[in-house]
């Protein structure tokens, strides 16, 4: 709808701006969530920065690896592809987790507690990111003519002239609701890792269902979309966290 906005002579991607707003809001929430485990604000910030650095590097490195054959055959377009948004979600996710974990490992901090304080911030950042998707026109929904149907203008990335289900906005709304719920769970919970588990399970289930209402081309594995298969892994991991299995493994093998 508005994939780019013009400020003076510069074109700025709307997704990038909303991603930045989301990240900033996430850092502000971290100031409050960090108090749960008496984590210094500076440590929470640095943990977030390491996770973001890990996420950026992971997304780009995995993108480089999977696109290496096309880069070799068309080296002239490689730099453009690399600079204009080529990134792999799984790489970003794994890189972000490893980046955050690296920070806690280097400075001998309790990683599970840091993940707990980070998930409400992540949910809020994702919520803003999905509004960015809405403006960008990506992640669009199935044809739909009911309440809240979205009509994209001619020339947009999604099909124009027909009503589409606002799948980006439903996910954003869910994440905006999930954020305070996670903060409440974090403040009430006595078990490190429970909030992380709850986030993974709830987001995984919602994402799995929401994928049925999306129609953008995004790959599939058998009869499920790639994101749905990923959601199943995320839900499983969430249940493991709720049953304290990663926490035990961390205490015995990885701590210090």
């Amino acid at each position: 709808m508005y994939p780019i906005i013009h400020i003076l002579n510069y074109t700025i991607p709307t997704f990038g701006i909303l991603f930045l707003i989301g990240t900033g809001s996430g850092f502000l929430v971290a100031i409050f969530t960090a108090k749960k485990y008496d984590i210094p604000t500076m440590d929470a910030m640095f943990f977030g920065l390491f996770a973001i650095i890990g996420g950026i590097l992971g997304a780009k490195i995995l993108y480089l690896l999977v696109e290496l054959p096309s880069f070799i055959t068309n080296p002239e377009t490689a730099l453009i592809k690399l600079t204009t948004g080529g990134a792999v979600f799984y790489g970003g996710l794994i890189g972000g987790i490893l980046g955050g974990f690296l920070y806690t490992h280097i400075y001998h901090l309790h990683a599970i507690k840091y993940f707990d304080i980070a998930v409400p911030c992540l949910a809020l950042a994702q919520a803003f990111g999905r509004i960015g998707c809405f403006f960008n026109g990506c992640c669009y929904g199935i044809p739909y003519e009911g309440f809240g149907a979205v009509y994209y203008p001619v020339g947009s990335y999604p099909p124009s002239g027909i009503g589409l289900f606002p799948s980006q906005l439903t996910e954003s709304l869910f994440l905006f609701i999930l954020t305070p719920v996670l903060i409440i769970f974090l403040s009430k919970s006595e078990t490190p890792g429970f909030t992380t588990g709850f986030y993974l399970v709830s987001y995984g289930i919602f994402r799995f269902i929401n994928e049925f209402f999306r129609s953008d081309p995004r790959g599939s594995i058998l009869f499920l979309s790639t994101s749905q298969v990923l959601s199943l892994f995320v839900i499983t991991l969430g249940f493991l966290f709720i049953f304290k299995i990663p926490q035990r493994l961390y205490e015995y093998h990885l701590k210090d």
Binding site: I12, I56, V88, C138, C139, D216, I221, V229
Partner: peptide
């Protein structure tokens, strides 16, 4: 610097990522 440079070239990884990796899974 990181924030502003990232704004310039960041994209929706959830979309691009799935398209990129789907063929390799």
């Amino acid at each position: 610097g990181l924030s502003l440079c990232a704004v310039a070239f960041i994209a929706c990884v959830a979309c691009v990522g799935c398209i990129s990796t789907a063929a390799y899974l």
